[in-house]
Every structure is written in structure tokens, then in C-alpha cells.
Design a protein around this nucleic acid. Sequence first.
DNA 1: GCTGAGATTCTT
DNA 2: AGAATCTCAGCA
Length: 171
Amino acid sequence: MKLKKQFFLNDVLEVAPYLLGKTLVRRFEDGTIKKYIITETEAYRGEEDLACHCSKGKTQRTSIMYEEGSKIYVYLIYGMYWMLNFVCYNEGEPQAVLIRGIVGFDGPGKLGKELQINKEFNEKEISNCEKIWIEDNNKTAKYTTKPRVGIDYAGEIWKNKLWRFILDENI
DNA sequence: GCTGAGATTCTT
DNA sequence: AGAATCTCAGCA
């Protein structure tokens, strides 16, 4: 069954690890439906988190993260890769979980390409979207935590946070 | 308006 | 180590 909106109102540090092992379902333009197991996520949490886009405050790009949880946040990085995120927690407190890996497509850029993610997904409702959704299995997966990737600019405190969650069986 | 850098990946 | 390639933020 689909993950409910309520689930994304929790703190991102609860949401990110819980998403591991869950099934990400994508309905493509031609009607084909494919399912992928989520293997890796990363948490970005609040304006004080220097690695979070919201550390620079509310802008046109980041305004979606200030809304209530369960919205999809998509953006283009390095001019070629679409990143897929889900907004978490309460309105006014920006948090998001980045999907970094799914079975068979290890890396946020690769999975964005495979899922054919584009700017049209931005600001959609993940709990009520006909193109993409997540299926719950009511299980808690075993996982390993590591520092986040690609954020050396965030400073020692935030760089060393263990907010990257990796599904154990996939290592 | 222009410039620099980025939650990446693939090639040299 | 560097290119590919585009959007946004910051500054003029």
C-alpha cells in the first residue's frame, strides 16, 4: 500500500532510514509500470544545516522545502542530473530526503535518468501522484550510516553528520 | 547582465 | 584531474 502523507510529516532523520527497502513505483508516459527497491538515502535538515540548500534561506528554488512534508523536490545539478527528494516535517521547517540509490541504479544521477525525472515532478504530492509513489511494507530494514557525499563546503560539523543511510543487504 | 559553483558521473 | 552543461545566487 502507498505511503501516506502523514508519514512525511515526521522528522527527516526518521523518514530517511525508514524509506530503505521500500518500493519506489514509477508509471511512465507509455503506461509501463516499474518498481525499484530504495537502497540509499540522505537527510538534509533545516536552515542551520550548511549542506542543505535552505542554509541560504528561502528562495524560489528552495521554497518547496518550506511547505508541509510529502511534496516532491526535484532540481537539476551540474546541468545534467535530476535529483529526486521528498520534503519532510512541518511547514516552515525545511527538511528533505534525497534518494541516492535504487537496486540496479546506484547514484542519484543515474536513478534520476532511469526514472525519467524532470522538473515537472517538482512540487507534486508524493502520497497522491499517478506518476510516482512509494509502497510501504511495514518492515524496518537494517542499515549502515555514513557521512554525506559531495558537501565538503558544509564545514566539519555538518560534513561529519552520519545522515547517509545505506541498506545493509546491498553493500 | 555576468560570474562562479554545485546533494554527479564518465572519461582521460 | 577534467569535462559535460544549466540554473541559481550574488554582485555589479
